[in-house]
């Protein structure tokens, strides 16, 4: 595990790594730095872990029981504390969610938006799994 954790971030490779199925499929372009988080096996389905990102940022990474993996910001925008990774996951009418463990506001794991307060949103991060290691995509500074 130690070796994985210290694995250096890798940069996004040239376009071949992500082919376009149909025009316009890809999210915001721009190269990303892929920060190693942890082996997939370390994730408990339904729960999150916090991941330290470059420049002191932090993300909350979740594996859901159905196999989906999401990453959003870890700082609860209401409480100003790094606790989102410790929230409970679930869904609201099919939208995958996490609830802050502090005051229980519910956020979409897909878009980061607070469901009852569309003005507020957590940042979202791209996820990639390679050889069993989960990495998060962080835009280059």
């Amino acid at each position: 595990m130690t070796t994985l954790i210290t694995a250096a971030p890798v940069d996004d490779v040239a376009p071949t790594a992500r082919a376009v199925i149909r025009p316009g499929v890809l999210p915001a372009p721009g190269a990303k730095q892929w920060v190693p988080a942890c082996p997939v096996a370390r994730l408990v389905p339904g729960r999150g872990v916090a991941v330290l990102l470059p420049r002191g940022r932090q993300a909350a990474l979740f594996l859901l029981p159905n196999g989906m993996i999401y990453a959003v910001g870890n700082i609860d925008p209401y409480a100003g504390a790094g606790v989102i990774s410790r929230g409970l996951t679930g869904d609201r009418a099919g939208e995958p969610t996490v609830a802050s463990p502090l005051l229980k506001q519910v956020f979409s794991l897909r878009t980061g938006t607070a469901l009852d307060d569309p003005e507020v949103a957590l940042p979202t991060y791209a996820v990639r799994v390679q050889h069993g290691l989960v990495r998060l995509g962080v835009p280059h500074p």
């Binding site: 199925i21 999210p27 997939v40 196999g67 993996i69 999401y70 979202t124 991060y125 996820v127």
Partner: peptide
């Protein structure tokens, strides 16, 4: 959209979706 599919060592497939999420 589906951005890429990568076979994992345990035989499962990790699928990256264009919205930044991933699926095992």
């Amino acid at each position: 959209g589906t951005s890429s599919i990568a076979a994992q060592d345990d035989g499962r497939l990790a699928v990256e979706l264009s919205d930044g999420t991933a699926l095992l």
